[in-house]
């Protein structure tokens, strides 16, 4: 079957989709967006978390056919998504990318100035930057799902308590870090966000 939907503000069409395929498979194998991860494919680890019409869900448990006409944000679009939210064009968290942004959007934004292959110079969302700065990334396989979940939590709860953070991220397994640095990262992103708002 054919499925049409919007990913990170861009219209996408997937053809010859087997009816049993998940949104996760379509993103990874058909649309060249492997950022959402395939750790358990049973909704137990959160590595494949994306936003579906603004709501964080496990993309492994969404049948591809169910996303027809809907809006998906993945980790690849998180920086753009956060930037637009900050610019006030997306208060609800469920909006897409403008046509102009969509046309210039790329899955692998590179800073043309340096020859860096590490993505330095890439514009990151505050939560992405905080994960790097706090040492919340080790193998990184859980990171995309955690970022999408944490970003959405900070959107709803800008000054979360530790227990709020733990609850919001309780659907995302990490095997490397013991979660301490992930908590640090979310606290850091929240604090930076607060400082920014105070400055404004």
């Amino acid at each position: 079957m054919r499925v049409n939907f919007t990913v990170n503000g861009r219209r996408q069409e997937a053809d010859d989709v087997w009816e049993g395929e998940s949104l996760l498979y379509v993103l990874r194998e058909r649309l060249g967006l492997p950022g959402s991860k395939n750790a358990c494919e049973q909704g137990e680890c959160g590595s494949c978390t994306v936003r579906l019409d603004g709501v964080p869900v496990c993309s492994c448990l969404v049948a591809a056919g169910q996303v027809e006409g809907r809006e998906v944000v993945t980790v690849e679009g998180l920086a753009d998504f956060a930037r637009q939210r900050e610019q006030g064009s997306c208060a609800s968290g469920a909006c897409g990318t403008s046509l102009q942004d969509a046309q210039s959007w790329s899955a692998a934004p590179r800073d043309g100035v340096t020859d860096s292959q590490t993505g330095e110079g890439t514009e990151l969302s505050p939560i992405q930057q905080a994960f790097i700065d706090a040492g919340a990334v080790q193998c990184g396989f859980c990171t995309p799902g955690l970022l999408v979940a944490a970003d959405e939590m900070l959107e709803r709860t800008p000054s979360p308590s530790d227990e709020d953070i733990r609850e919001a991220l309780s659907g995302n397994l990490c095997r490397c870090t013991g979660y301490e640095k992930i908590l640090d990262a979310v606290r850091l992103a929240a604090a930076r966000q607060e400082r920014k708002e105070e400055a404004v």
Partner: peptide, 24 residues
């Protein structure tokens, strides 16, 4: 019937079930 998919898709992903029709 498939709504949230939180049961059905697990069974499909793990090859436990191959329904003839999925009703979204």
């Amino acid at each position: 019937p498939i709504a949230g998919g939180t049961d059905v898709m697990v069974e499909i992903n793990f090859d436990h079930r191959r329904p003839e029709y999925l009703l979204d």
